[in-house]
Design a protein around this nucleic acid. Structure first.
Length: 483
DNA sequence: TTGAGAATAT
DNA sequence: CATATTCTCA
């Protein structure tokens, strides 16, 4: 690479007074074409800038990583063999987001320009570049430096989000490094002292000390829903007691998950165990509090495999529960669910025995909007029927069952309306999109991220209806056992 | 400021 | 390997 920083243009068309700011602005110039490099270099020098020239983006990157603080701005050609300008932009966006980058190209295609700017270029100069444009380059440096720290960080995050690297399912974020120099929080220096590794670029020994090259270092893993799904499936398969990091790691790697380490698995396992414990505690507490006098299962039965079907009558989204979980429903939900059971089982006439009834998926009506139950007949805890009682009601007393149905006045089974006669629920008000939840799960919502978690209502978590297909959610929460 | 999730230390 | 602590981000 050509790193001479001659100042042959110094005395010529000096545009600003020496020792005043833009003078001596340190420019790193990258162009694979020697002639262009010379031309732009001289022009920039004529502007009073101090220019370092590189023929390859890779060289520029090495220089920046090693001596970041020796440059104020990067000006790079876009189309180059090897690493091109886009790639360079991306890497700089990740590693040195505070470095302003200007892209030059003879290609003035709109998409190219847009792509350059999206990737974080401050400006896009199309050849031939007028001197005036080069003169103004310093503005970007000032602009960047004036950015508030928060803004810089936000921008970094945005860029990380946009161009973060995905390796299979593992999303690796490159670590932030060395941005902002003086803007960095105080503890940055302390952290470094603690770790006893690389000092600031300028302090690092000149003896080719490049071992702190960025990006090859620590990365942070994100357990995506899919990854977690695999993880849970393996844990279930092994059994909670036998599921240890090493075994899980082996299996996950066998499933083709790259970039995993035992430590990462261990960390996730720790979190998962804490989560399970918490679920258990919460459930027990709730049980003790409200439902102690009643017959309660000792443990919350795990949600079964995804139900074979999903109710979607009358454009009303419904989800189903195995009936044996009825006891776990809240009072409101119980009352509501009872009606659903009665209605669906009777109208469809699909069960004939108590056992079948117990195994019948229970449709639970979704409710829209309000963070509170819909109006419904309250049913006191001590009146909560067991599934057997409900079954007996259905089997033996049409009268009782019928009266329960939607406050309808019909009194015998024969008077029940057909499915098609049931009026559809009015749609939720249009203006209320904030609470447009469509289904919910009991206790077992694994948060994937804060934005992804549902609204907690009683012990249920409501999820937004983002997907047509609920089975993926079921799979996530109740992974089908392998094999 | 805090809570959660991941990394790292014990 | 399990658990505690630290780090980072939102």
């Amino acid at each position: 690479m050509d790193t001479n920083t001659t100042k042959e243009g110094e005395g010529k068309a000096m545009l600003m007074t020496k020792n005043k700011f833009p003078f001596g602005l340190r420019v790193l110039l990258v162009d694979d074409d020697r002639t262009s490099l010379q031309v732009w270099g001289r022009m920039l020098q004529a502007c009073g800038y101090q220019v370092t020239k590189c023929l390859r983006a890779e060289d520029a990157l090495v220089m920046l990583r090693s001596y970041r603080s020796r440059f104020d701005i990067l000006i790079s050609d876009l189309h180059m063999p090897g690493m091109d300008g886009f790639k360079l932009l991306q890497i700089i966006g990740l590693e040195m987001a505070d470095l302003p980058v200007i892209v030059i190209s003879s290609d003035d295609d709109y998409n190219t320009i847009q792509k350059g700017l999206i990737n974080g270029a401050c400006d896009f100069l199309v050849k031939p570049i007028p001197m005036e444009a080069l003169k103004m380059v310093w503005k970007y440096v000032v602009c960047k430096r004036r950015m508030k720290l928060e803004e810089v960080q936000k921008q970094q995050q945005q860029q990380l989000w946009n161009v973060g690297h995905y390796y299979g399912d593992v999303h690796l974020r490159l670590p932030y490094r060395d941005h902002q120099h003086n803007l960095l929080p105080l503890n940055e220096g302390i952290k470094r002292l603690k770790r006893g590794t690389d000092g600031d670029e300028d302090e690092c020994k000149a003896s080719g000390d490049h071992d702190h090259v960025v990006g090859a270092k620590k990365s942070r893993m994100i357990w995506t829903a899919d990854l977690h799904h695999k993880f849970v499936a393996i844990v279930n398969e092994l059994g909670l007691k036998r599921a240890v990091p090493k075994k899980i790691l082996e299996r996950m790697q066998a499933m083709g998950v790259p970039n995993l380490t035992r430590e990462k698995v261990a960390s996730h396992l720790q979190k998962y165990r804490i989560y399970l414990q918490k679920q258990k505690d919460d459930a027990l507490q709730k049980t003790d509090q409200h439902l102690a006098p009643l017959r309660r299962p000792q443990e919350i039965p795990p949600l079964g495999p995804p139900p074979p079907h999903t109710f979607n009558h009358h454009a009303q989204m419904m989800n189903t529960y195995p009936n044996h979980q009825l006891d776990l429903l809240t009072q409101f939900q119980r009352a509501r669910t009872v009606r659903s059971i009665i209605r669906s089982s009777q109208l469809n006439n699909i069960v004939t025995t108590h056992e079948e009834f117990q195994n019948l998926p229970v449709p639970v009506e979704a409710h829209h909007g309000q963070n509170k139950p819909l109006t419904t007949t309250q049913m006191a805890d001590d009146q909560t029927p067991t599934s057997e009682q409900i079954w007996n009601e259905i089997k033996g007393a049409d009268h009782v069952a019928a009266k329960e149905i939607d406050g309808s006045t019909c009194t015998t089974k024969s008077e029940l309306p057909g499915l098609h006669d049931i009026a559809p629920r009015p749609p939720p008000p249009l203006h209320d999109t904030s609470g447009d939840f469509s289904f919910f799960f009991k206790n077992n919502a694994l948060r994937r991220s804060s934005g992804d978690c549902g609204l907690l209502l009683n012990e249920y978590t409501l999820f937004r209806d983002n997907s047509e297909d609920y089975s993926s959610l079921w799979n996530e929460i109740c992974p089908p056992s392998q094999g």
